[in-house]
């Protein structure tokens, strides 16, 4: 029998045409964004998608000189890194505990976490706002961190639980006989074994946290405390808009994620979609 690849496919040109057209559709907005960020304010209106006639670097200059955007960027970085670190640490500890604790309580705790997967945390915004006021965290960058951690824990516990359950008992058994305590086993054996799963969890949470608008929007007003995405909304002043400046900021705000994505596209796609079809 012929291998399937040898079967002639009359549709092939159409398939490539379709995918190429879609690729154009993906790149076109990005092209519009980057190309226009180098144009002068009025050129954008006269020629919205050609190459710039004269390069205007003012948009980028204003981002770096005497502007709050580096600060926004650092705030976003702080929020993302801190949230991810806490999600991974707390999530793996909890998953390990749930796996090793052979009792119906642990199953309940596990299910309690898993139940969070079906509930979007936005539903709780009204009360979260009140909590932030009470904790005195309102209008502070760090206010969003506990929310992101809570939001990321269900998926972390769920993924890591399965992974840890799959670790053969012999691997930890030996350490147990050597007299290592559970914490020691966790830090010296488990963590290194679940590294790939930790990466998946990190990637899964990275994109939504970096790109989140909702919680910064409702918690933070003060200039110095804004995240990058919230800062972007500030670009639209009450009375005037300078598109070249806006597009420069938009372009820069995409850079970190795009770089990460392009260098680890496979992990990203797998991290974001794998397991989804497991059920």
């Amino acid at each position: 029998m012929r291998p399937p690849s040898m079967i002639r496919d009359p549709m092939k040109p159409f398939k490539y045409l379709l995918l190429s057209l879609w690729s154009l559709l993906v790149f076109f907005p990005l092209w519009t964004m980057v190309v226009n960020s180098f144009k002068f304010k009025n050129d954008i209106y006269l020629d919205p998608f050609g190459l710039p006639k004269a390069i205007n670097l003012l948009g980028y200059k204003t981002v770096f000189e005497n502007s709050p955007f580096p600060r926004y960027f650092l705030n976003s970085l702080l929020v993302t890194v801190a949230s991810l670190a806490l999600i991974l640490l707390f999530g793996s500890l909890a998953a390990y505990g749930c796996v090793r604790w052979k009792s119906r309580y642990s199953k309940w705790i596990y299910l309690f976490f898993v139940a969070g997967l079906t509930v979007p945390i936005k539903i709780g915004s009204v009360n979260l706002l009140q909590i932030m006021i009470k904790l005195g965290l309102l209008d502070r960058t760090i206010s969003v961190i506990p929310v992101y951690v809570a939001m990321g824990l269900p998926i972390a516990v769920f993924t890591l639980y399965e992974f840890i359950k799959g670790i053969p008992g012999e691997l930890t058994e030996a350490a147990l006989i050597d007299g290592a305590g559970p914490l020691k086993i966790y830090s010296s054996i488990i963590v290194s074994l679940i590294r790939p799963a930790l990466a998946t969890v990190a990637i899964f949470n990275l994109v939504p946290i970096w790109n989140d608008l909702w919680f910064p929007l409702i918690f933070i007003r003060q200039d110095s405390q804004r995240t990058l995405i919230l800062g972007v909304t500030r670009l639209f002043g009450e009375y005037q808009t300078d598109w070249s400046k806006i597009l420069a900021v938009l372009s820069l705000s995409c850079v970190p994620v795009i770089i990460l994505y392009l260098t680890m596209a496979k992990q990203f796609i797998e991290g974001l979609t794998s397991g989804a079809v497991k059920g």
Binding site: I133, L138, T233
Partner: peptide
């Protein structure tokens, strides 16, 4: 000087004042 963008000003200000900040 610490401005907010206009559509959010009234709501954000009220929230801040209410929470004492």
């Amino acid at each position: 000087f610490d401005p907010t963008n206009p559509p959010d000003y009234n709501a954000a200000l009220r929230l801040q004042l209410q929470s004492g900040i």
